[in-house]
């Protein structure tokens, strides 16, 4: 047995175990940075049909089937540039903020759609899905909270979101509601 060759190939194996995830992280950070050309607040929203949710949480293979993410209550400051990266974790959705005339923008699985706008006057605005995406479509709502100077989220008690009746959010078993078709 040639020890030099053994050690070299073992190092190659160990190196690849580190290099592969490093490469993935590198490409992912570049893909995300591509949308940050100008100084702006970049927010990623993922659409989840089971439960009917727009969320700021990361939705990937490891958690999609396990737990339901928190619905988004996205906070921006009035007047700043906002870039929202939109993803879908399952089917076709459509993003819109009707009051701000943002969208509707098609959100397809495996793609990233981007909307840009300047955050308007302070207030809370409803985020909708405008393509029927499943039994929880009607309750697929989120809000964009625009803070004025000196305001905090505490100034906006959660009042805009109607209570969820058909698809209550209980933070787990994301897919159990999907059955009643």
């Amino acid at each position: 047995m040639n020890w030099k060759i053994e050690i070299a190939s073992a190092l190659l194996v160990l190196l690849s175990l580190v290099a592969a995830p490093a490469w993935v992280l590198h490409v992912e950070s570049e893909a995300a940075a591509a949308h940050e050309a100008s100084p702006a607040r970049v927010i990623t929203l993922t659409a989840v049909a089971a439960g009917g949710i727009w969320t700021e949480e990361e939705v990937a293979g490891h958690n999609y089937w396990r737990r339901q993410p928190e619905p988004a209550r996205t906070v921006v400051l009035s007047g700043e540039n906002v870039v929202i990266r939109l993803k879908s974790a399952d089917v076709s959705h459509s993003f819109s903020i009707p009051e701000l005339e943002v969208g509707p923008v098609a959100v397809e699985p495996g793609k990233v759609s981007v909307v840009r706008f300047v955050a308007p006057a302070p207030g809370e605005y409803l985020i909708q899905c405008s393509t029927r995406c499943g039994p929880c479509h009607e309750e697929m709502l989120g809000t964009l909270v625009v803070l004025g100077s000196g305001e905090t989220l505490a100034d906006y008690p959660p009042g805009l979101l109607p209570p969820r009746t058909k698809c209550p959010n209980h933070g787990s078993a994301a897919h159990s509601e999907g059955g009643d078709r």
Partner: peptide, 12 residues
């Protein structure tokens, strides 16, 4: 001649 009326009961 086949005429199909296509509808969806859930998503796109």
């Amino acid at each position: 001649t086949v005429r199909l009326k296509l509808t969806s009961q859930d998503v796109v």
